[in-house]
């Protein structure tokens, strides 16, 4: 008996010692087993502890805006999966409102395009848009770099992250990407359940909801990212003069009114919903699909039923179950992760 308990004791002691250690060693982004390989090429920009720290500081940095009033984190808030909760569209500099809802910034490593219209193909290029946008930060990236070069702390942080004090475009953008690369949400009850983790279960209602979801929603909200990453018109509007969606970048008439299918993770933290923040609740979203779909030339064919009616047939019971399922996609570990909060 003693033969076994001695090593055990040692192990326990060791475990106790670990408590005094400052923090767990830095490990890069969480690459969950239920996700495919990332679309972002991490080999071109390996995430390091110092790069992540620099990226985080930049994400919370108001110097990135023309008048030092707005940081990325003002529209992308950690406890809301880095979306802008309660804001249909986001107000940026000078209180100006953009025309679109700020989406969650999560699982960006698996995305093949960015923004509601897919105007940007690479995560590294995303911040240039936010910085230059006259309704967001209204600043020239060139001036941002100048401000960072003149700053008392940044050159040293660039040195730690990239080996020298040089502040250049690529490093600045790659640091922000390193921060955003770490924002992986894959520990919801649903994830633990599909990874067959010990003790992970889902309520019966949610399990039924999962099947209904797969039938009725899963073509568009596909895979464990809950998006097939295409652009579609889901009938929330029939007049797109205010915002033509995908057409604004592709110029193709077929793309008028199409927007990227969004992920459905952490929905309970990211209301309101849709590119224009049209719906405040999940009930309203389900009611839309059941009975509110508006017709227009580019409406997705999946939302036209054989009998000519529009939308997705859903009973009250089915709606409740689907919502129960959607709620299992909320990842509290991610929403409360202190590594990401200010």
């Amino acid at each position: 008996m003693l033969k076994y308990s001695l090593p055990l004791l040692l192990l326990l002691l060791l475990a106790a010692c670990r408590k005094d250690e400052p923090a767990a060693p830095f490990s890069g982004p969480f690459l969950p087993a239920n996700f495919p390989a990332p679309a972002y090429d991490l080999a071109l920009n390996p995430v390091t502890e110092d790069g992540f720290a620099l990226g985080k500081k930049l994400f919370y940095e108001r110097l990135l805006s023309r008048d030092t009033t707005i940081a990325c984190a003002d529209c992308h808030i950690s406890y809301a999966a880095f979306s802008h909760p309660d804001h249909a569209t986001s107000h940026g500099i000078d209180g100006l409102f953009g025309k679109r809802n700020a989406p969650a910034v999560q699982n960006m490593l698996w995305r093949t395009s960015f923004f509601w219209d897919g105007g940007v193909p690479n995560l590294d290029l995303v911040p240039l848009n936010a910085i230059q946008s006259p309704v967001e930060m209204d600043e020239s990236p060139a001036r941002v770099l100048e401000k960072l070069r003149a700053h008392p702390e940044y050159p040293a942080m660039f040195k730690k992250a990239f080996g020298s004090e040089e502040v250049n475009t690529a490093r600045f953008l790659q640091a922000l990407s390193q921060f955003m690369a770490m924002l992986v949400s894959a520990n919801s009850p649903y994830d633990r359940f599909v990874r067959l983790e010990p003790g992970a279960t889902l309520p019966a209602e949610a399990l039924e909801g999962r099947d209904l979801f797969a039938q009725k929603c899963g073509t568009c909200h596909a895979t464990d990212q809950f998006t097939d990453q295409t652009y579609r018109n889901n009938g929330i509007l029939n007049d797109f003069t205010h915002d033509r969606g995908r057409n604004e970048v592709s110029t193709l008439p077929d793309d008028i009114g199409k927007f990227r299918v969004p992920s459905l993770r952490n929905l309970t933290a990211t209301a309101p919903y849709m590119h224009n923040g049209k719906f405040k609740t999940l009930e309203a979203v389900l009611d839309h699909y059941a009975a509110g779909v508006k017709d227009s030339p580019t409406l997705d064919p999946l939302l036209r039923q054989p009998d000519g009616s529009l939308g997705i047939p859903l009973t009250a019971d089915e709606k409740t179950k689907i919502i129960a399922f959607l709620k299992t996609l909320t990842d509290d570990d991610f929403l409360r992760d202190e590594r990401f909060a200010e």
Partner: peptide
């Protein structure tokens, strides 16, 4: 080709 330097003003960030 540097969007924040040489190509300043010659780069669309919203439609990359």
């Amino acid at each position: 080709l540097d969007p924040a330097a040489g190509a300043n003003g010659m780069y669309w960030s919203w439609n990359a």
